[in-house]
Nucleic acid binder design. Structure first.
Lengths: 369, 369
DNA sequence: TTCATAAATGTACGCGCGTACATTATCTCA
DNA sequence: TGAGATAATGTACGCGCGTACATTTATGAA
């Protein structure tokens, strides 16, 4: 007890000692505290001479605004919450996925004076988003890696009922008018499937991800649309389910290999599964892409590294994070919130690489990137 | 102006309306506000009956502590800052690197009630860490991706002079007693080099990263130690410099190829460069690993994906983040700070894969992982 | 029963800032 | 030159909580 008090004091001794208060600045500048506050916040009319005196006094004393006190007085935390699923030691999504989205968010927030508060939640468990606002820990909130599992969706629904700035990234909820930035996965998988069809592959297998994610459903839809357009019946037997992990792709290789005689190609829900699948098929002696064209999804870094480089669908994760954060910021800034409750859909793009070429190696193909 | 005020009010209307205050809880429970505070914070002696009444009243009213007000009263933000270099759209390090460290940090912080505040800085620029503390934005601070560039080191030095809880991850500063958690890169590259030597390779090239990172210097030291032990002179001609990016590894391939006749193998400073190098060499017609064994560093996900899978050095990034954060937390908690100013060094481990095997393909090797 | 002692609770204040409102200085135009 | 308007500044208070200190209540030994 004694030690603890002592230590904490010691820890902040220097900082405390060197902290000038607003009062001192006011005294040195010969003005009131209110004027100091006004100068520092740039509000209200201030005589130039006064402003300069205050600024100089503040600089001389090394005065820094106490962010916590400021937040308190304003009733705002100054933070934007980013809620992530926490899966210890396991990368549910590729790290690429979150890294990119986070980078985009960081870019948007970086210049706005807002803090980025990282919050972890347990996937599948209820999460009390509303408390984040009630406790004033965040002024706005971004939700990453959400799913439609009942408990998760309930949390989002509760959040949507409060009139509070938040935005979900890469997940939508059928009936709920939840503000979200998603990618056009319907189109992405549609185009990917069409690409395979155009190359003469009719019997296209589909290794999709967990159904609780709306992007899984969207991909499934695009895939079926493309098949239907060509008058090809949708064959349940060659639709496989993984969980977006490499391991699940690797394990799917057994099923795919067993179905080899009724498969012309396989479309995957993300690159990690595609990579696992490729790995598994290679171990079974498949010569890729000649034996079985594979298409991935995400355009993750790794997709161009493996052999064969994956044809895949580029998803603008970075921009999605950027857009989602920008929306929140503009709403916080009092901007229009027209699009606030809306769904923003960013385009995806097919990236053709060698993994779906079955022509002879001599036919050189152009590589994207 | 009018609109703005209106919007902000509208935004928080619901939340405001549903926010019970401590006073209401006190009234409903028939006690003073102080007692409510004590019950909620678990301090001081409280009669069981009182505690129950207060808890029930709080529950009934849906009372939630205002975190900002609480922080303010305590003079602490409740946040731990994580300072990251911001490189728009470019992954200076592998995303693997930061993802893992951040995961470790998240794991440590998750259960402590602390927030994780992400802060971006411009690499190479001075960063005012001390202000983070002065403005009370953070109670403690973790520094990732730091380097010894003069401006960066100056910032760290200023931070070290304040007696404040902070910890640098994977970077040390020669003369400065800076608290840090690093990995044993000397040993890592020493072991990797010895492994190549033991396989009969004497002329080992070294593609190292930018020298402003202490881990570069450490790897260089381990590499030279191993060579010296075998009585092999250190040959500047086959030491190459990249910047830890895949591109720089790819570009180094030209130089490596040119020096092919005086190289038996190449050790790389990280997996990304190794991957780029492999890519570049393959394009030049090298058959790997038979023509030139390559060893990477980090054991990033991608290292096992490429062909050939990379022999590499595993670095416990996750644990490094975990340890660094734990140190801060225990210090914040008033724990002993024995190791606070110390350097904590975590072990690295060689992971042998195919990229450095030159034996015939028939000799099956065991794969780690 | 009677105090001393401890347990339990109440009272009161400050944390540092933003800002509504009051006040004073300055300007404008007749 | 004066009065009304406006610019500039000062005064005063609340934000919600933690906690030092004062006060009351329960406990226990003599």
């Amino acid at each position: 007890m004694y030690a603890r008090t002592f230590m904490n004091q010691a820890s902040t001794e220097r900082i405390e000692a060197s902290m000038a208060t607003r009062k001192e600045v006011a005294e040195l500048a010969g003005v009131s505290e209110a004027t100091v506050s006004r100068v520092l916040n740039g509000v209200g009319p201030i005589k130039d001479a006064t402003r300069e005196r205050v600024m100089e006094a503040a600089a001389r004393l090394g005065y820094q605004l106490n962010a916590v006190a400021s937040s308190f007085a304003r009733g705002l935390s100054g933070n934007i919450g980013v809620v992530l699923p926490h899966v210890p030691k396991v990368h549910l999504f590729s790290t690429y996925y979150f890294s990119e989205i986070l980078s985009g968010i960081g870019e948007a927030v970086r210049t706005g004076g807002h803090g980025l508060l990282l919050l972890y939640r347990d996937p599948g468990q209820p999460f009390d988003y509303v408390s984040l606002f009630r406790t004033r820990r965040v002024d706005a909130c971004l939700v990453l890696g959400a799913s439609s599992l009942p408990d998760e969706e309930a949390g989002i629904r509760a959040l949507a009922e409060e009139d509070v700035p938040f935005c979900v990234v890469d997940q939508r909820f059928g009936g709920l008018p939840v503000p979200a930035v998603i990618a056009d996965h319907v189109s992405g998988s549609y185009v990917a499937t069409r690409h395979l069809l155009a190359s003469g592959h009719a019997r296209i297998g589909f290794l999709n991800g967990s159904p609780q994610y709306s992007n899984s459903a969207d991909r499934s839809q695009g895939y079926r649309m493309a098949l239907t357009e060509e008058g090809i019946a949708w064959n349940e037997d060659i639709v496989y389910e993984g969980n977006y992990s490499r391991k699940s792709g690797y394990e799917a290789a057994a099923r795919v290999a067993a179905d080899f005689d009724r498969l012309d190609a396989v479309l995957c829900g993300n690159d990690r599964m595609a990579i696992g699948l490729v790995q598994g098929l290679k171990e079974r002696g498949f010569r890729l892409p000649y034996d079985l064209p594979i298409v991935g999804y995400d355009n993750a870094d790794a997709s161009s590294l493996i052999d064969p480089p994956l044809t895949t669908v580029e998803v603008p994760f970075y921009e999605m994070g950027l857009r989602a954060a920008s929306r929140l910021l503009s709403r916080l800034g009092g901007g229009a919130e027209d699009a606030s409750a809306g769904l923003e859909v960013l385009p995806t793009r097919l990236v053709v690489r060698k993994s779906c070429k079955t022509s002879t190696p001599e036919a050189k193909e152009s590589e994207n990137e």
